[in-house]
Design a protein around this nucleic acid. Structure first.
Length: 111
DNA sequence: CAGCTGACGCCAT
DNA sequence: TATGGCGCCAGCT
């Protein structure tokens, strides 16, 4: 487990209840803005014993992750259910309003 | 060391 | 708005 993965886990662990972050956003905070794919890989590599709000990570379009593996739709539905249980509302096309739910840490550049 | 893979992002159409 | 194609980078064989 590399340092990048640990950073990703640490960041995801800090996402507050009812909020979300995007893969690219997490990658940037972890130090590599273009390593968004590695963020997804880091989440997939999370040990089962570790508690991590993985469901609060969505892509740049506000959709839940694809996950075309054999698990298939189950995990996607689970992610949506978990988010809805935190008050996140999905549109009819299965997307959420990032303007409303995405957390901002180092944004709002100083004027 | 050289590929290969993947829970992604961005741009063009 | 929806697809498709290409780029990207960390970890693993």
């Amino acid at each position: 487990m590399g340092d990048f993965f640990k950073k990703v886990h640490s960041i995801v662990c800090g996402i507050p209840f009812g909020a979300v972050m995007t893969y690219g956003q997490i990658a940037g905070i972890a130090g590599n803005p273009r390593a968004s794919r590695a963020v997804g890989y880091a989440l997939r590599a999370t040990p089962e014993g570790v508690e991590l709000p993985w469901h609060r990570v969505v892509n740049s379009k506000g959709e839940v992750s694809m996950r075309r593996s054999f698990s298939g739709d189950d995990d996607r539905i689970l992610q949506r259910v978990l988010l809805e249980s935190e008050g996140v509302v999905f549109s009819e096309s299965g997307r959420i309003d990032l303007k409303k739910y995405r957390v901002r840490f180092l944004e709002h550049p100083a004027p």
